[in-house]
Design a protein around this nucleic acid. Structure first.
Lengths: 213, 213
DNA sequence: CGAGTCTGTTACCCACGGGTAGGAAAAGTC
DNA sequence: GACTTTTCCTACCCGTGGGTAACAGACTCG
């Protein structure tokens, strides 16, 4: 049990771990949030006990998996948010980044959004609650960016958080619906959402002949 | 099997059905989307086969349950949306109506939002897809109202749908987050969201000293 | 009274999914 | 080559949950 041996073992263990996570990825990509440990083990070409040796239990695997994707997506979003451009442009870039991601791997993001679903033994305590599901994390992250950069007057912190979560929810729901129906191009969707955030709802005139909205 | 007998039977069957639905309600209220047929039968004081006689299968019960609440909530929302007041006031009333509802019965609405979760035999076809879960229906409904009453110029139909789903998602996510953390009063939340829809995001000035957002 | 039916119950089937024990096999060790 | 140790797989346990078959009592009707 000397040092070099230790590192060798750890190296191989890490490699294995990565492989397993990638297999899990593929399964989630195919089965969505319903992915079972059996299926994941099968996909990885190994058997369940190994999975359990590596991740402890299902929650552990899920957490590892979630962390991976969540971090990746959040990095992309931060990049879009930090680009040197006008505010509107950056908002559009951020929306587009998110939509591209869910478009490329819808099942994965369904899994990330609702980590609790598909589990039956986790009845007692909701995994989603303490694994900080993607939506919450994105909301908080966005809130922070807003609060940092915008001058919102008194109560700005509260306001920023509400907006953060609200905007993320808007993005998510619109994205979900759009994925299902594909009623327009991604660019159109981005523009429409940005328009909404830019106050076009309040600015629009009442339709002639009808009761005002 | 003459006519009056038929009606008697039907009457009693209907009453029973209502009782069962109310029991199911209570269970969902307690257990959320994980409510099982066993639990519901127990709560109703009867046994599973009766449930199955009345609703066919789990999907049937879920659909009936969902329809009930969905219709009720949508009616409230329509009422708020149709009130004789200014646009901003009506938007706030609608937001407040929704938030009151989820505040009163959070588990029920978690169930309505994600009808697919907690089911294991429905793997093949997603119940949520054809039972038009609450979020989608609200989105479409709102889209219709927007499109009917607002003059949005060319592409108004598309725009209205995007906005409908987007606003509903915003409401939902913000509501979810708010329920979990209670960072402010309902009224504050309503005002903040309305501000967001009114374009304060675009109108806000950059914070002095930082990079613009 | 006896035949059919409606209602409800018990008791079960079956599949699934998380999680683990215990033995086979492979790899290192003297 | 025999002995230990580690690694991994087979085979299973257990709880759960949807769904059903088969039986038991009430009620009707001839």
């Amino acid at each position: 049990m000397d040092a070099t041996q230790r590192t060798d073992q750890q190296r191989s263990a890490d490699r294995r771990r990565r492989e397993l996570l990638e297999a899990a990825d593929r399964v989630v990509l195919r089965d969505g949030p319903q992915a079972s440990m059996n299926a994941i083990a099968a996909e990885a070409g190994i058997t369940k006990p190994i999975l359990y040796r590596h991740f402890g239990d299902k929650g552990g695997l899920y957490a590892a998996l979630a962390k991976r994707h969540t971090d990746a997506l959040l990095d992309s979003l931060r990049a879009a948010l930090d680009a040197p451009a006008e505010r509107r442009e950056r908002v559009e870039a951020t929306l587009d980044t998110y939509l591209s991601a869910i478009e490329a791997r819808p099942q994965v993001y369904r899994f990330l959004m609702h980590p609790a679903e598909g589990s039956q033994s986790d009845q007692g305590f909701d995994v989603g609650k303490h694994s900080a599901p993607l939506l919450r994390r994105m909301g908080e992250e966005l809130a922070q960016v807003i609060e940092e950069r915008l001058d919102l007057g008194p109560g700005s912190q509260q306001l920023a958080r509400v907006w953060g979560h609200g905007i993320v929810g808007m993005m998510h729901a619109a994205g979900d619906w759009w994925l299902g129906e594909r009623p327009c191009s991604r660019a159109d969707l981005v523009r429409s959402l940005a328009d909404l955030l830019w106050g076009r709802l309040a600015a629009a005139g009442d339709k002639v002949g009808g009761p005002g909205f």
